Amino acid sequence: MTTYLLVHGAWHSGQAWERVAPLLTAAGHRVLAPTLTGHGSAPFDPEAGLETYVADVKRVLDEHDLADVVLVGHSYAGLIVSSVVNDVPERIGHVVYLDAMVPVHGETALDVMPITGVLVEAAARSNTPERVPPLPEMPAPHGLFGVTDPGDIARLRATLVDEPVRAYEQPVRLDNPVADAVPRTHIHCVGFEVEGITRRPVPPTQPNGSPAQVWELHSGHDCMITAPDELAALLLKLA
């Protein structure tokens, strides 16, 4: 049995994984999909940020005494899982960057994806400068984070919350060479790219010296909602 720890991205909640988790469980594996501080039904926390979310995930690892975990970070959570692997590499068997930000030491979300600076600047001009609201729905085929079905959009919108500005401004600390040994996989959602949002190319070699592992999934950004079967099939290859 493999344990999957699924970490949602900015604005979302653990509910984002509700179509993927049962598929992994049905295959005989354990799945944990926590909701981070200030997300879901929890009250907004202006003091929360990257360090808070890293502590949230590490708390799950500790409370369940987990090891050899497949740690999956979606979107912004690429920063979170990178930091978790840096802090507790002995608990992580594999890290998956799911259409995610991939930082280097000392970077913030603003560094990894500069377009997020536009969101922070807009927040600064608003009446709630500590809050970054979710991205708006776009015309098809982009929809709301790649979700275009009206029912799915309504359910997703009901779960989205504002993100604290601190989440974008706190840097990652990736200074533990032991973490380099943890294998990693990148899953890129392709076919529905949004102009102005680009991902960094994946280096041909992983930090552990093995060839890079990059898989593509034909889906919008929130593939756990729009392509759960295909995503689960890829994740099960790591079990």
Rank of each mutant, 00 (worst) to 15 (best):
P89H: 00
P89D: 00
E90A: 11
E90V: 04
I92E: 01
G93P: 02
G93N: 03
G93S: 03
H94R: 14
V95M: 10
L98T: 05
D99V: 03
M101Q: 07
M101E: 08
M101C: 12
P103Y: 04
V104T: 13
V104C: 04
G106Y: 06
E107D: 01
T108A: 14
M113I: 11
P114F: 10
I115F: 15
T116N: 11
G117Y: 06
G117A: 09
G117S: 08
V118T: 12
V118W: 04
E121A: 15
A123V: 06
A124D: 09
R125L: 14
S126E: 04
N127T: 15
P129Q: 03
P129V: 08
P129W: 04
V132R: 07
V132Q: 05
P133I: 02
P133N: 08
P134H: 11
L135E: 13
P136L: 09
E137Q: 12
P139F: 11
A140I: 09
H142T: 03
F145D: 04
F145E: 02
G146R: 12
P150C: 09
P150I: 10
G151A: 13
G151D: 08
D152M: 14
I153W: 11
A154G: 07
R155I: 00
R155H: 13
L156Q: 10
L156H: 05
L156M: 15
L156V: 05
R157H: 11
A158M: 13
A158R: 13
A158G: 11
L160S: 07
L160A: 05
L160P: 08
V161E: 00
E163N: 10
E163K: 02
V165W: 02
R166N: 15
